[in-house]
Write a protein that binds this DNA or RNA. Structure first.
Lengths: 138, 138
DNA sequence: AAGCTAACAAACAACTATTATCATTTAAAA
DNA sequence: TTTTAAATGATAATAGTTGTTTGTTAGCTT
């Protein structure tokens, strides 16, 4: 199912309202693999709804995160990034330009929490972050 | 070599000054596996040097990071954490209490950047972050 | 279609973590 | 001891984000 459709449904199921601003955000997130920050999303919505406020963006992103439809990435130390793909996958970030790319490789057969932690933690997921320099920055 | 001694040497080699404030920070970092935030370090230094400023803490942490003697962790979305162990290792964070523990397991034989990225990236390191709930929080 | 109401958007203020500025102080070399 | 480059700390500034308020609206109900 497409993102816009899916998110619309999920919000409806929680008796939340589908507003033009939110639809716009859904559209921006659809098939988005660029890991945008709140500001990037804000700018793009602003192009079409010049009166939209930053608060609305933050609030909507918060709602989507709470519903598990969006993942917050803390891979960049300057700001949060958002990823509509909530399936387990990994990232590579250029430490120079901060660009983040997806790494779709299933490491789960090999990356397991050591025995000693098993009884003390309920693991929900894990994330591999590769750090390096991209070709453009080198 | 102990942390205090090592960091003193490294700073001297870069003609930087060893101040009591810095020595205090070095001591706090020594064998520290609690991944403190700047604020936690600030508070502990303040206990002994009540006049110390936050700026000094941040500056010193920045210096140590630049010299590669300290690693900045971006695993918590609220604030940065610092880890004096700069050898490759991994972390598990409780999404409830935000406690961070070390995971010493060598995943490097299995976690490799896919072929497609190899020619476009110079990877310096990778990091596995496990997210879950610890026993105390559950 | 009209009315209702919880949820919403936007304006704005506030907050938190961090960084910058700069005058004063100090480590440590000469 | 003198010198000087560097560090400190007071203060202000900034960036990113969150909280509050008030008028508005989506979407249900009738």
């Amino acid at each position: 199912m497409e993102t816009v459709e899916k998110l619309t449904k999920v919000l409806r199921n929680h008796s939340m309202k589908i507003t033009p601003q939110r639809l716009m955000i859904f559209q921006i997130l659809e098939n988005n693999t660029s890991h945008p920050s709140a500001e990037e999303i804000f700018k793009r919505v602003k192009d079409i709804y010049p009166t939209v406020s930053f608060t609305t963006i933050y609030k909507t992103l918060e709602v989507l995160c709470d519903l598990g439809e969006l993942r917050e990435l803390t891979i960049d130390d300057a700001r949060k990034h958002y990823d509509p793909n909530t399936n387990t996958h990994h990232h590579i970030i250029c430490t120079s330009c901060k660009k983040i790319l997806d790494v779709f490789e299933d490491f789960s057969p090999h990356v397991k929490l050591p025995e000693s932690f098993r009884e003390n933690y309920m693991i929900s997921n894990f994330q591999v972050s590769f750090y390096g320099i991209c070709k453009e920055c080198n």
